[in-house]
Amino acid sequence: MAHAGTTWGTLTSVTSPEAPDSAAAPPPSRTEPTAPSAEDLLLATARGEEQAFAQLYDRLSAGVHGTARAVLRDPDHAAEVTQEVMLEVWRTAARFDPTRASARTWVMTLAHRRAVDRVRAVQSQRERDQRSLDGMHHPPFDVVAEEVEDEMERARVRDCLGSLTDTQRDAVLMAYYGGHTYREVAARLTAPLPTVKSRIRDGLLRLRDCLGVPA
């Protein structure tokens, strides 16, 4: 039966619309001391400077590609997502605001979002379920990085992951590298949803503090 323009049935009332958004003051300025000039390169990219973009590519593409590879596992998809992300960086560089994020965080956040978009688009729920335990193996830490700089970063992150509890670490890594929603993580770990949300948030906060990331 069709009910054109009827009510919500047993739902007796509807909730009030949420308050309209107002423009928020930008958060405090945050820049990562480890990558001071990636910001300059990104700002120059926003002005259409192809040379700067090429340098930015050299600086950040390994992180983008590694993230995509960790989440997607598939080399072809990872390369495609890398290309997509770097072109999006080129196209939308004018949106970067150095007072709000470092260039690396801006690009890496975009990279992870796109990798997760892709994994959710191309993989069935079942495949991701089967894959999810792999997230426990912390794949990026199983191999030695090609660049010394990358290996130092890897060692630093690995050390800082040691400051998380085991359950926090599992939840964070399964979500980040596995590309799983926290609901999927909760199902895999047979833990309550609020618990998993807390583990991810608290785990990231510890990681942030250990890494000395400004916040």
Partner: peptide, 9 residues
């Protein structure tokens, strides 16, 4: 973002 960077490849 550091987690992503740690996976650099």
């Amino acid at each position: 973002a550091h987690l992503g960077q740690a996976a650099a490849l």
